[in-house]
């Protein structure tokens, strides 16, 4: 577990979304915070939070990195992959790419929201919204 910030003070803008084990490594997990949809990605133990709706046709971005339907029958790679090195995800529907750190898409020339993630020493995870 990577402690992303030692945190002991109460912060109104931090919202608990679960525990570190709720966010398995190498994939995305969707969470809802009130009306907000957030995709959490665990890359090498570090968590990233990005808006969970692609601006193109509203695909759930947390699906990036999960298998296609009947994927055991499909050889090769698939559209919604996660680039672990560049910290980029590809939308699972048509493949637009987003930078997990900045929310930038090289195609759209604009950003989608990203959020700071706080992993507390006791394993609780919060996002700053």
């Amino acid at each position: 577990m990577v402690i992303q910030r030692k945190y002991s003070e109460y912060n109104m803008r931090e919202k608990i979304i679960g525990r570190i084990e709720d966010f398995p490594e190498g994939r995305g997990t969707g969470v809802k915070l009130g009306g907000l949809k957030i995709a959490i990605f665990n890359i090498d133990g570090k968590l990233y939070a990005i808006h969970d709706s692609c601006p193109h046709k509203h695909a759930p971005l947390h699906e990036s990195g999960s298998n296609r339907y009947n994927s055991e029958k499909c050889g090769g790679t698939f559209l919604g992959e996660i680039d672990l090195e560049l910290k980029m995800i590809k939308c699972p529907w048509h493949g637009l790419r987003f930078d997990l750190e900045t929310g930038e898409s090289p195609v759209l020339k604009r950003k989608i929201p990203v959020y700071n993630v706080v992993v507390r020493e006791d394993g609780e995870v919060a996002v700053v919204v």
Binding site: R68, N70, K73, L79, E81, G95
Partner: peptide, 26 residues
């Protein structure tokens, strides 16, 4: 244009009725 080998069947595979049924429900 996609940087993936199978850039046609990007959503999966279905060949028979049971697979289609499972898929459409999603």
């Amino acid at each position: 244009a996609h940087h993936i080998a199978d850039s046609l069947n990007t959503q999966g595979t279905a060949l028979v009725a049971e697979e289609i049924d499972g898929l459409k429900k999603q």
